[in-house]
Write a protein that binds this DNA or RNA. Structure first.
Lengths: 248, 248
DNA sequence: TCACCTCCTTGATCGTGATCATGGCTGCAT
DNA sequence: ATGCAGCCATGATCACGATCAAGGAGGTGA
């Protein structure tokens, strides 16, 4: 009987192209990374898989009630916060294994819209259940604290970038950071495809699109990268990292 | 016997001008805000009061091992992150009831130095004990999540400020935000003393000191504020808030 | 009282990156 | 093929705020 029920669940999951945390290639980067197998099953049980988002679709909109956080499974998304009329700001890009929505806990509403940059799948994690589970799984709780803490650190780095770095340094930072994030996820750190437009990049880095274009052109002339549309080849990561960290 | 021990503790505390969370005027803003009386006693028990910091002294330095978070009790502090040689960046100001050090959890080291801007007292909260206590006190855990989430939201607001706002808007934002924070803490939202220098403000907002000075002068001419050294009188908070939010 | 130091203000000039304007490229529908 | 739309590149000009320079205000110690 219990077996039947379990099978039914499994069947539904496989129909939706879903797998379990235990089999997920991202489990070493994702929230349950510190969990033992039996604990991971408990965690897995609270997760809701969602149908893939198509490019341009939103996971949620700014102001929607906060119920869940989401772990990116594949694809990528951007977070956009709007203030007043038409003044959009890209505040984050999310890659696989990253957690989306943590900034909505406080006000019980999402402070920005999150939009898929390509076909993207996410795992939905209802926050009240995550919170309850974090009560009995100290490792999970610790991981949640660490995730939020890391996001705080990253934000501080971003503030430094926005307030003290030149346009060149910002782009160098952006590309070396992307390269690093891809590397950690097992992709090539040298060759990848940007899922976001130049406009998104510029908006995120506090630069005009034209500036992004011009500087990418210059980087290419300097032999740092090879860019063709959204295909990127990093030729000299070393130099890019140096460039990103240089004093004015 | 137990009574004696308790008295001894009380005595030591009062010698150090310390009180308990239960009597603290900030308890409605601080971490234990959601706790019942008996729970607050448990929380109170893990807190270590520290001798006041004098102006310019540091609570901890960038890179120090992370052991505790701190709640500001009185006074104020700034967080500074240094990269390379001499490139300092002020990434935060902390006022009473705010939590310091949450961004150190992830790497078990503080990502920036935190320095008193005036005579300042803090409550030290050892993080491992806080974590343990958050296991049995769901309200405390929730409050911790909310604190971090709020900081994330504030960071996003800061990013928007740094990447899209003019110098005038940044200062208008800064003053209206300060005013609001003072108001919430029961101080006058119209009249207060800045504990940070113009240089600190400029650094924090991504502006040169000269620009800060000039714009404050202009605000004064426009009748928005009255500034004399570090004494601030906000004459037209309304206009300041509008100014801060205006599209370019 | 004076010298000294830090913090702040004000003026003049310069440079980075925004803005405006245009044209090319790519993909897509018909 | 053709037209259209979104995205990207490049050139010309402009403006905001940085930087350089100098001087004033206020506090502190000899």
């Amino acid at each position: 009987m219990a077996v039947h029920a379990a099978n039914a669940v499994d069947k539904r999951r496989s129909l939706l192209h879903e797998t379990r945390c235990q089999n997920c290639s991202l489990s070493s980067l994702c929230l349950p990374l510190a969990l033992e197998v039996e604990d991971m099953e408990q965690f897995d049980a609270i997760i809701r898989r969602r149908a893939p988002l198509k490019k341009g679709e939103s996971l949620f909109r700014q102001g929607n009630a906060f119920n869940s956080v989401y772990a990116v499974r594949s694809g990528s998304l951007k977070q956009i916060t709007t203030e007043g009329s038409g003044d959009d700001q890209v505040t984050n890009f999310y890659l696989p294994s990253e957690l989306v929505g943590l900034d909505g806990i406080d006000e019980q509403a999402y402070p920005g819209s999150v939009i898929a940059l390509e076909t993207t799948t996410v795992c939905e994690i209802p926050f009240d259940r995550l919170d309850s589970l974090s009560e009995i799984l100290p490792e999970l709780r610790g991981q949640l604290y660490r995730s939020m803490s890391k996001e705080l650190r990253d934000d501080r780095r971003m503030m430094r970038l926005l307030s003290r770095k030149t346009a060149d340094q910002r782009l160098a930072s952006f590309f070396s950071s992307l390269s690093d994030r891809f590397r950690r996820r097992g992709y090539s750190p040298h060759s990848f495809r940007l899922s976001m437009s130049r406009a998104d990049i510029g908006n995120y880095l506090g630069l005009a699109v034209e500036t992004v274009s011009r500087i990418l052109g210059r980087f290419q002339q300097q032999g740092l990268v090879e860019v063709s549309g959204r295909e990127v080849n990093i030729l000299n990561l070393e130099a890019l990292v140096t460039q990103a960290q240089e004093e004015h």
